[in-house]
Simulated scan of single mutants.
Amino acid sequence: MEDTPAPSRHTIAGTELTMPVRVRRARQWTAMFAVDAAAAQAMIDYSGLRVARALPGRAVVVLMLMQYLDSDLGRYYEYGTNVLVKSPEGPTGAFIHHLPVDQAFTCEAGRSIWGYPKVLADFDVRERGRRLAFDVRHDGRLIVDMEFAAGQPLPAVLGEREQVYRTYSHTDGITRETLGHSRPSAVRVRPGGVRLRLGDHPYSDELRALGLPKRAFVCQTADNVDMTFGDAREIG
């Protein structure tokens, strides 16, 4: 019988993390936009990956807010600009192009363990009834200001299935792939449903080059997402 390899460990700011990292409770808001595929490809060319084309000439960009309430990386907010890409092994994955967070520990862990492009930023999150609005600023400059309206509940048989997902990152000249598992609950969806305003940050200019702001074709929220994700694998 072969010995089971010991789980890998990483020490961040004096704290040891054992893989896989677990997120026990998190809230999620995502908005998906159809954008010009050539513009999206130009934005992520540095990664060596190719955008997935949902329709001829169109790619998908996902803008996302996560609120991590109970995780191995602590409590924090995270904003992401993700581009759906072709996985080298076939399935579609998400390339993470921007990833501001509001806590130093997860910033250091994300950059050193997975090569995620995390930077420290300031978040202002406002909830009014069933609407959520937030803005995120880096170096005092606004990146995005978004507001999500509540959608319609998705039946549990559709919205609460366990999912395997692939994320990709590229830092220090290295492209990495990270596999994870997630199970969302209390999922709501609706066409549109998102107001987006861009600021004066360089990240904002990159989003303008994609044709944003525009109407999202769908938004989705989840009251909780349970996740695990392991070590990154270098792919290029």
Rank of each mutant, 00 (worst) to 15 (best):
M64G: 11
W29K: 05
G57F: 12
V83W: 02
R50H: 10
Y79L: 13
A52V: 02
M32L: 14
A42R: 15
T18F: 07
D70N: 06
P100L: 08
D70Q: 06
S87L: 08
P56G: 07
T18S: 10
L49Q: 02
L99I: 05
D3K: 15
F95V: 03
D70V: 00
P91T: 03
E89M: 10
Y77K: 07
T4H: 11
T92Q: 04
P20D: 15
A38L: 12
K86G: 06
L63Q: 09
Q28M: 13
A26F: 01
G48Y: 12
M19V: 02
F95E: 00
S87F: 06
P20M: 15
R22C: 10
T4C: 03
D72T: 06
A39K: 14
V85M: 05
P56V: 03
G57L: 06
I12E: 02
L55M: 14
T30L: 14
T81R: 13
L63E: 05
A42F: 07
G93Y: 00
P88A: 04
R53Y: 01
V35K: 11
D3I: 11
T81E: 11
F33W: 03
A37C: 05
L65H: 08
A26E: 07
T92W: 00
M64R: 15
Y68N: 08
P56K: 11
Y68T: 07
M66Q: 12
A42V: 05
S47C: 04
G90E: 11
E89F: 13
L49E: 04
T81G: 09
T18N: 04
T11N: 06
Y79Q: 08
M19E: 10
L17V: 09
G57K: 07
L65M: 09
D45W: 01
R27P: 03
T18Y: 01
L69W: 00
L49N: 03
I96A: 08
G80S: 15
P91N: 02
P100T: 06
D72G: 03
Q41G: 11
I12Q: 03
P56E: 13
T15G: 00
M43T: 13
R22Y: 09
G48S: 07
T30Y: 05
R9L: 05
D3A: 15
L84K: 11
G74T: 02
S8W: 03
V61D: 05
Y77H: 15
R22L: 13
D72P: 00
L73C: 03
V60S: 04
R53E: 15
D70E: 09
P5T: 12
Q28P: 01
A94C: 02
P91E: 09
L49W: 09
D70I: 01
T81P: 00
E16P: 02
T4M: 12
M66H: 12
A34N: 09
T4N: 10
L69P: 00
T18P: 02
A94R: 09
F33G: 10
S47M: 08
M19Y: 01
G48P: 01
G57S: 08
R75Q: 13
D36C: 07
L84F: 11
R50C: 05
R25Y: 10
R53D: 07
R53S: 10
N82A: 13
D72I: 04
V23W: 06
L99D: 01
V21F: 04
V51H: 03
H10R: 07
R9C: 08
K86D: 14
V60D: 10
Y68H: 11
I44V: 14
L73M: 13
I44Y: 04
V60F: 10
A6V: 12
I44D: 02
M64D: 10
V61N: 04
